[in-house]
Write a protein that binds this DNA or RNA. Structure first.
Length: 209
DNA sequence: CTCCAGGGGGCCA
DNA sequence: TGGCCCCATGGA
């Protein structure tokens, strides 16, 4: 069923091509986008580019006030500035992204989760989109989608196991499916589902709370 | 004006 | 990953 949904969503919305940028930007935007609209994250990324902040080393060289100012559009800038610093120190201690992502993915995931400000979704997004690891991130949209579609609430781990078991073992499928579910929910899985025009309407249970 | 976004930490029971 | 509150900007 997951594969069927994937193919329906792909046909309806097309390829999303999330996070086509470089690994550095993917990693920092994983923090910046926490509970924040992507358009606001782009403003912050543009601020960083304009100042030539293109490495974790340069983030560490910024004083806290300057960093907060650059990322202000993404909201929660006090805590996100602190979290970017912590993440940058970790990244610098690892000797570069190549070495980092050559580690065992489960070991790396544990290390990321141990950092303040990195929870399951942020860690898994970094591993999938920056590290090209076959790990499927579960976000609020995915939980909402599952509840609408199958009528049951599942935990992060339960949902992740389901997608890992049923999705094609294919990086593009993982990356696209996560983005496609977000696109679907932005349009159709809100509090009041708009089942009629939903591309999955024929398969949806039409849960209305 | 209100609502909420591509979460996570801290704290509590 | 229990539940609740907090963090903050900016678009609709």
């Amino acid at each position: 069923m997951i594969r069927k949904i994937y193919s329906l969503l792909l046909k309806h919305y097309g390829k999303q091509n999330w996070w086509p940028g470089n690994r550095f930007e993917i990693v920092i935007s994983a923090i910046l986008t926490q509970n924040t609209r992507w358009e606001n994250v782009e403003k912050s990324l543009e601020n960083m580019r304009r100042k030539g902040i293109d490495s974790f080393k340069k983030i560490l060289e910024l004083d806290d006030g300057a960093l907060k100012e650059l990322i202000r559009p993404s909201g929660f800038y006090n805590q996100k500035a602190e979290r970017l610093k912590i993440l940058s120190e970790y990244m610098e201690s690892q000797g570069g992204l190549e070495k980092l992502f050559s580690k065992n993915k489960h070991k790396l995931r544990k290390e990321l989760l141990a950092l303040k400000g990195i929870g399951p979704e942020t860690a898994d997004s970094i591993l999938l989109y920056a590290g090209d690891k076959l790990i499927f991130p579960i976000d609020a949209y995915t939980k909402r989608f599952w509840k609408r579609f199958f009528g049951e609430e599942k935990t992060y781990h339960e949902l992740q196991e389901i997608f890992h078991k049923e999705l094609p073992r294919d990086l593009e499928a993982y990356k696209e499916m996560h983005a496609l579910i977000v696109e679907l929910c932005k349009n159709h899985c809100k509090k009041r589902p708009l089942c009629d025009s939903c591309p999955l309407s024929e398969h949806c249970k039409k849960i209305t709370d």
